[in-house]
Design a protein around this nucleic acid. Structure first.
Length: 288
DNA sequence: ATGCCTCACAGCGTGAGA
């Protein structure tokens, strides 16, 4: 089961690349952000092409700004637009949609940008994240939170932390809000897979930032622990950021292994088990 | 070449993105 999330920065502008990418990567479930389309416009543009590729879709949009969707070719049930007590700015915005796909509730999220730490939009961002946490708590652990979080979880997720002092995306309150969300029992599957690596999902269009690999990792897949344990691969598809007419974000992809049908036994020896004598096994021994 | 910003809406500039 392959799940992906991609801030496409206008589904209309990205249409050819999005459809080609779906054919190439064949994800089972895709979360989109910044479609920038009304539901009617999205349906007019994508009902046909997505149907041909085997995807059903749930879109929550508005004119010009925001807009999120879940695409699935493994079932799309119990669609929910927005979430309980989601704050607006001041009116509700199209920043969240979720559906049950293959037995998992998948959320496509576009967290408010925040603009500057002094702005009303920043207050809105924190309130939105707090409400999201309360709203999704009941979905854990069979849940995937996918999307553009507009937060770099740690300084390792920013090309130059010094360049972002005083800016949004890296402030302690934003990171605390993300941490509170993850404290529900969610795992950042890409960082878990690449603990020491430089991995970014967004690069500014300007000044050749992508080509210098000066970016940020702000697009995340947060998985309930049992789902995270099934992750066989988790990566950021930098290929989709190359070439002509890309989004400024790259897709994030996770491949989940099939759920075990029954008890497949412990994956590691219990703590009480005696470790084998050094040199007694065929596997290389760890070096201190 | 991975190659130096893009998008929407308005209406040929402006605000937003992060």
């Amino acid at each position: 089961m392959r799940i992906a999330t991609w801030n496409v920065n206008s589904a209309r502008q990205r249409s050819p690349r999005l459809l080609a990418w779906l054919e190439q990567r064949r994800p089972d479930v895709v979360c989109l952000q910044e479609t920038k389309l009304t539901d009617e416009a999205f349906a007019e543009l994508f009902d046909g092409p997505l149907g041909e590729l085997g995807y059903a879709h749930a879109h929550a949009g508005q004119s010009a700004w925001n807009g999120v969707a879940v695409l699935s070719r493994i079932g799309l049930e119990d669609v929910r637009t927005g979430f309980t007590d989601a704050p607006g700015f001041p009116d509700p915005e199209a920043r969240a949609v979720s559906a049950v796909c293959g037995g998992v509730r998948v959320h496509s999220l576009y967290v408010p940008n925040g603009r500057t730490p002094e702005s009303d939009h920043y207050t809105y961002k924190l309130a939105w994240l707090a409400a999201l946490r309360d709203a999704v708590a009941a979905d854990v652990p069979d849940v995937l939170l996918c999307g553009d979080f507009n937060i770099a979880p740690t300084d390792a997720d920013v090309f130059d932390p010094a360049a972002y002092v005083g800016h949004t995306h890296v402030t302690p309150p934003e990171r605390a809000a993300l941490a509170a969300l993850m404290d529900l029992g969610l795992v950042d599957v890409v960082r878990e897979r690449w603990p020491e690596d430089t991995v970014y999902s967004y690069w500014d269009y300007r000044a050749g930032m992508f080509h210098k690999n000066l970016g940020m990792r702000i697009d995340l897949i947060l998985a309930g622990a049992p789902l995270a344990a099934r992750a066989k691969a988790a990566w950021i598809d930098r290929e989709a950021r190359k070439g002509k007419g890309p989004s400024d974000h790259a897709p994030v992809i996770v491949d989940l292994d099939r759920a075990p049908d029954g008890d497949i036994g412990p994956m590691i020896p219990p703590p009480s088990a005696k470790p084998p004598k050094p040199g007694s096994g065929r596997l290389p021994q760890p070096t201190p």
